[in-house]
Design a protein around this nucleic acid. Structure first.
Lengths: 337, 337
DNA sequence: CTGTTTTTCGGTAACGTTCTCGGTGATTTT
DNA sequence: AAAATCACCGAGAACGTTACCGAAAAACAG
């Protein structure tokens, strides 16, 4: 049954004290080179592995970071994770991943029952603008640093890293306008989420700046999936006046819209322009290919993790807010040839 | 600084012993209902959270499971993870995720440095048929149960759960044959991986059974990405005799092939049939839509985790090998209308 | 009432590690 | 040669929790 060689085993095998072994195993100071050598050799011989529970107990740190995500089956969040893991791995931290499935209740449940003593810090993208962010505040109050990314919580004072949703949406909308589309609809995400609101605002301001009509009936809110995108488009097409372009809150919904338009035999690009947000690899694969605003998912992941590590290592580290720019990528779906 | 309420704080606040508090916090036995009540109340009042390091130290278990994946930015592995997490969450286990990026060296590095004492078990999909599986055997020898899934290691005696790659490939190939394609090529994965070999064998046996030519020049091996698929197809089209159908080892490569064929103005389905493997959501989105063999990723994840938990809980549990069937999904890319 | 069982609780060791504090000798300084 | 310094090592407490054992108090049996 589960039995590792411990520091004590090494000590008794070598007839020295555990303290000496402990020192030998870490820094070289205060221990003779030869005994140190003997300890190291015995350690590999016995296949010694440090017990992280014990170390965590005395140091009150575990080299474990928690990540809380709404979902993982998705290009954006999975590359984001890859970015996080990139810096965590180099820094010697392990990552414990929690996925809420966009369920706010589950989020609270997870955070409340979090084995906080097993985590040195927490990276989170909130599942929905929960009525209360109290559960995150509790974590912070317990002395565990939290960094928000992408879907951030506004009420909590801590580091956050986001992409520039407002400007991305603004540029996307302007791009449609410059390509001759004048009746631009917006297929949005659920109301209440910060970044959904930011993209909506970018869209609205672009319209206003170019003196284009803002029609509330051309703005429809729902979830983030492709199916939602299809439904939203059907809804738009029931309107008396139909739009001639669509700015979708993300690529999955944009693709849903494209599929629905194709079913109606509407020529995408020519009759109706479409642009998304994210730059999911599918955007390049789908036909016609989808214009979009590329999000720096990988960089956001890296940056968030670096920030969290700073919080952990410095005693007092002032929260930072970073906003990374997106990048307009023009493809067929928004080009009137 | 990081300071939680401990069991001792509760004890001294209530003027009782720590052992009593400890008992009250867990089972009801051996403790008076009223004191139990008082303890529970004080615990929430002080916002008590159990210290998992301490518990792990005395019990030698941590309620932490490790997952080792080649990648996560990918439909298959991310839904697989979701399946794992589904059962882990209900069982009260946390998941520590390690992604190797298909780097065999990194895999060894991760496994060797694994804080094994922090994990109750390990779920792994190997990154490549490493020259040696020694590092996994070491983990098992240390008493940490390991369950393989999807990409399994043949030399290690432990539980494994896979999909039926052979029969899936066989059916896919037969499907192409029945639809009138006679010159079927195979865009395979890297040589040496078990499941790559299984799909190749299914393909070969289907050809043989239907007395179709097996041409080595119609079988090309490379990586798993869409780019690889495009390159493989280009390579096939340099052959003297070109195939009229393609069975790809996965959907991403199949889509690469489709894109390359489209660039050549070859009508997919009519001129050349294409079928993939996985049932990535893109398969339904791409145009023409891609026929494929659906893999039960979510179920594989669930089953693997259940098996691992069995290994952890029973003292001696005989390794099980489970093979789940795939499901042929016919779409446009393989239909000669 | 006495003796026995049950209920409820406390003391203490243990888990594996680090850390602080001394304590040897040996070596150097004055 | 005494004093100070140095290199190296050990004892023991501490981290937060559980487990084992026994004791006091209460309940019960005769």
């Amino acid at each position: 049954m589960r039995r590792f060689a411990t520091i004590k085993d090494i000590a008794s095998a070598l007839n020295i004290s555990v303290s000496t072994v402990s020192r030998a195993l870490r820094d070289t100071y205060d221990v003779n080179a030869s005994t140190r050598q003997a300890v190291l050799q015995k350690a590999t011989e016995l296949n010694y592995r440090p017990n992280f529970n014990a170390i965590g107990l005395v140091h009150n740190r575990t080299h474990n970071l928690g990540i809380l995500l709404p979902e993982i089956t998705n290009y954006y969040f999975s590359t984001l994770f890859t970015g996080i893991q990139e810096v965590a791995y180099k820094a010697g931290y392990n990552l414990t991943l929690f996925v809420t499935g966009n369920d706010a209740e589950r989020e609270v449940d997870i955070v409340r029952n979090l084995s906080l003593s097993g985590l040195d810090g927490l990276l989170v993208s909130v599942s929905s603008q929960a009525d209360s962010d109290q559960h995150f505040q509790e974590v912070i109050d317990n002395g565990v640093p939290v960094v928000f990314f992408d879907r951030v919580s506004e009420n909590i004072h801590t580091s956050k890293v986001m992409q520039d949703d407002y400007n991305g949406a603004f540029e996307a909308t302007v791009h449609l306008i410059k390509n001759g589309y004048g009746k631009i609809a917006h297929i949005a995400g659920p109301e209440g989420l910060t970044f959904t609101q930011a993209r909506l605002n970018g869209y609205l301001d672009a319209l206003r700046k170019h003196k284009l009509p803002v029609k509330p009936s051309w703005i429809v809110h729902s979830g983030f999936t492709q199916q939602h995108g299809e439904q939203d488009l059907e809804q738009l097409w029931e309107r008396r006046e139909k739009p001639d372009a669509i700015f979708a809150v993300n690529d999955r919904k944009a693709i849903g819209a494209i599929l629905a338009l194709k079913r109606k035999n509407i020529r995408i690009g020519k009759d109706v322009g479409v642009i998304g947000f994210t730059n999911d690899p599918v955007a390049a694969i789908v036909s016609p290919s989808l214009s979009t605003v590329a999000e720096p998912a990988f960089e956001i992941g890296k940056l968030s993790c670096e920030l969290l590590l700073k919080h952990i290592h410095k005693k007092r580290f002032e929260p930072e807010q970073v906003t990374l720019p997106g990048k307009l990528i023009v493809r067929e779906s928004s080009s009137r040839l």
